[in-house]
């Protein structure tokens, strides 16, 4: 049997960190689905873009990735606004599924643009080796603490935005009933713009965290897509808080599934982690398509 400390240090904490990253991506997918009513396939590549924009600053100016975070978030949000204007806005009034095809195309355009600009090699931020802090039996890497804390701060900020500001309330209104929101005088296009800014901004933060935690490569957006969708479905699509819970749950499930629960061998081979996300998604679609947080059943 593996000691409890190893269970926490090698499975639970990494699961929590991965869960935070998934949560940041899934919020955007869930919000966009709620407001624009389509599954945004390019969202994983938004995260990739964020991760690569940070490389501009870490590689050229020797910034720490944390310092590059705000400007990366803004940059990715701007790109998202441009992409929306060019590729999604023309489809506002057509069936959602055509927009899905457009986002599928944007996904591959983003990826090939990234490959063209930065090449296909795996990159890191060169933060150097930092030794983990030890608290008794716990070994926690500083970056794990930062990722969890920054994610928590971003989620709280999102909560305050959605519950306290006029714009946040308008956003929830559009998500609940776009037609009713429009006739009550809400500027839907403004809400859409802010949905992109928030969704893409959080995705960029998640992407930078992936770079801090492991490494950056052009195909990582595709690998992220399945866990992100699974998290959004689990949390209930259109429900940002659900997406946070769903992201954490998928991250933890994926890591804990590789724990040797019943024998000396990992319960699920590490190579099959994305299959765990898929299983969760399929179970939810069969059992409760509205998600844990009673999102919308479309």
């Amino acid at each position: 049997m593996i000691a409890l400390s190893d269970f926490i240090n090698l499975y639970l904490l990494p699961g929590l960190v991965v869960g935070c990253i998934y949560a940041l991506g899934a919020i955007g997918i869930s919000l966009l689905f709620g407001i624009l009513r389509f599954a945004h396939f390019a969202h994983g590549d938004m995260m990739t873009l964020g991760a690569y924009l940070a490389i501009i600053f870490t590689a050229n100016f020797d910034w720490s990735p944390y310092a590059a975070l705000p400007i990366t978030v803004i940059g990715t949000a701007l790109v998202a606004l441009l992409l929306d204007r060019a590729f999604y806005k023309p489809f506002r009034r057509s069936a959602g599924i055509v927009t899905v095809i457009a986002s599928f195309g944007v996904m591959l355009m983003l990826r090939s643009a990234i490959q063209l600009i930065w090449g296909v090699d795996v990159k890191t931020y060169d933060i150097g080796i930092r030794f983990p802090m030890e608290f008794g039996m716990l070994k926690i890497a500083p970056r794990q603490v930062t990722i969890v804390l920054v994610t928590a701060a971003l989620v709280i900020a999102l909560h305050l935005f959605l519950s306290r500001t006029r714009l946040g309330k308008a956003m929830r209104a559009v998500s609940d009933d776009p037609d009713l929101a429009r006739v009550s005088g809400i500027n839907v296009e403004q809400v859409v713009r802010w949905t992109w800014i928030i969704g893409a901004g959080l995705a960029a933060a998640g992407g930078v965290f992936i770079g801090i935690q492991t490494k950056v490569h052009p195909n990582m957006g595709w690998d992220l897509l399945l866990p992100l969708f699974a998290a959004a479905v689990l949390g209930g699509i259109g429900r940002p808080y659900g997406a946070v819970a769903g992201g954490l749950a998928i991250g933890l499930c994926q890591e804990l599934a590789t724990y040797p629960w019943f024998s000396e061998e990992p319960f699920i081979a590490p190579g099959y982690k994305p299959a765990v996300a898929f299983s969760v998604m399929v179970i939810m679609l069969i059992w409760r398509p509205t998600g844990l947080f009673r999102g919308r059943a479309f």
Partner: peptide
């Protein structure tokens, strides 16, 4: 599993099938 739901769910699930 997916086709009794809205089309986007099938889209997400087919990504999953491709990955698995």
């Amino acid at each position: 599993i997916c086709l009794r739901l809205r089309g986007d769910y099938l889209a997400m699930a087919t990504i999953g099938i491709a990955e698995v």
